Simulated scan of single mutants.
Amino acid sequence: MASMDRGLHGPLVPQPDVYIPSPDQGFDFDAVKDLVIWDQFGNRKRFHTLYQETKTIIIFVRHFLCYVCKEYVEDLAKIPRDYLQEAKVRLVVIGCAPHTYIREFRQETRFPHEFYCDPDRDLHKALGLRLDGTHGKASPHVKSSVISGVLQSTWRAVKSMHYQGDMMQQGGQFIVGPGKKLHYAWRDRNSQDHTSVNQLLAEAGVQQINLPNDPRIIQV
Rank of each mutant, 00 (worst) to 15 (best):
residue 1 M to C: 03
residue 2 A to H: 12
residue 2 A to E: 12
residue 3 S to W: 04
residue 5 D to N: 08
residue 7 G to Y: 07
residue 9 H to F: 14
residue 18 V to Q: 12
residue 27 F to S: 04
residue 28 D to I: 00
residue 29 F to N: 07
residue 29 F to D: 04
residue 29 F to P: 04
residue 29 F to I: 08
residue 29 F to H: 07
residue 30 D to Y: 00
residue 31 A to C: 02
residue 32 V to F: 09
residue 33 K to S: 11
residue 37 I to C: 08
residue 40 Q to L: 04
residue 40 Q to I: 06
residue 43 N to K: 08
residue 43 N to P: 00
residue 43 N to V: 03
residue 45 K to L: 14
residue 46 R to E: 13
residue 46 R to S: 09
residue 47 F to L: 03
residue 47 F to T: 09
residue 49 T to H: 07
residue 52 Q to F: 04
residue 54 T to F: 00
residue 54 T to V: 12
residue 55 K to I: 03
residue 55 K to F: 02
residue 57 I to A: 10
residue 57 I to S: 05
residue 58 I to M: 02
residue 60 F to H: 05
residue 61 V to E: 10
residue 63 H to G: 10
residue 63 H to R: 11
residue 63 H to S: 13
residue 65 L to H: 11
residue 66 C to L: 11
residue 66 C to S: 15
residue 68 V to C: 12
residue 68 V to K: 06
residue 69 C to V: 07
residue 69 C to H: 07
residue 70 K to Y: 11
residue 72 Y to C: 01
residue 73 V to D: 02
residue 73 V to F: 08
residue 73 V to R: 05
residue 75 D to K: 14
residue 75 D to F: 01
residue 76 L to F: 15
residue 81 R to S: 08
residue 84 L to A: 03
residue 86 E to T: 13
residue 88 K to A: 12
residue 89 V to Y: 08
residue 90 R to S: 10
residue 92 V to S: 09
residue 92 V to Y: 06
residue 92 V to Q: 10
residue 93 V to P: 04
residue 94 I to A: 08
residue 95 G to I: 02
residue 96 C to T: 09
residue 96 C to V: 07
residue 96 C to L: 09
residue 97 A to K: 01
residue 98 P to Y: 10
residue 99 H to M: 05
residue 100 T to M: 11
residue 101 Y to S: 08
residue 102 I to G: 01
residue 103 R to F: 03
residue 104 E to A: 15
residue 105 F to K: 06
residue 106 R to I: 06
residue 106 R to C: 14
residue 110 R to G: 02
residue 111 F to H: 08
residue 111 F to V: 07
residue 112 P to S: 09
residue 113 H to D: 07
residue 114 E to I: 00
residue 119 P to G: 13
residue 122 D to Y: 11
residue 122 D to L: 12
residue 124 H to R: 03
residue 125 K to V: 13
residue 125 K to S: 14
residue 127 L to Q: 08
residue 128 G to H: 05
residue 129 L to H: 06
residue 130 R to I: 06
residue 130 R to Q: 13
residue 130 R to W: 03
residue 131 L to P: 00
residue 131 L to I: 14
residue 133 G to S: 04
residue 134 T to C: 00
residue 137 K to V: 13
residue 144 S to R: 15
residue 146 V to E: 12
residue 147 I to H: 06
residue 149 G to W: 09
residue 153 S to E: 10
residue 154 T to I: 02
residue 154 T to Y: 04
residue 156 R to L: 09
residue 156 R to V: 00
residue 157 A to W: 06
residue 157 A to Y: 04
residue 159 K to Y: 01
residue 159 K to F: 02
residue 162 H to D: 13
residue 164 Q to T: 07
residue 166 D to G: 00
residue 166 D to Y: 00
residue 167 M to G: 03
residue 168 M to N: 15
residue 168 M to T: 04
residue 171 G to F: 09
residue 172 G to K: 07
residue 174 F to A: 10
residue 175 I to K: 02
residue 176 V to C: 02
residue 177 G to Q: 04
residue 179 G to K: 13
residue 179 G to W: 01
residue 188 D to C: 11
residue 189 R to V: 06
residue 190 N to S: 14
residue 193 D to Q: 01
residue 196 S to G: 15
residue 199 Q to I: 13
residue 201 L to S: 12
residue 201 L to W: 11
residue 201 L to C: 07
residue 202 A to Y: 05
residue 204 A to R: 10
residue 205 G to C: 06
residue 205 G to T: 06
residue 205 G to L: 10
residue 205 G to K: 08
residue 207 Q to E: 15
residue 211 L to Q: 09
residue 211 L to M: 12
residue 213 N to W: 05
residue 217 I to V: 13
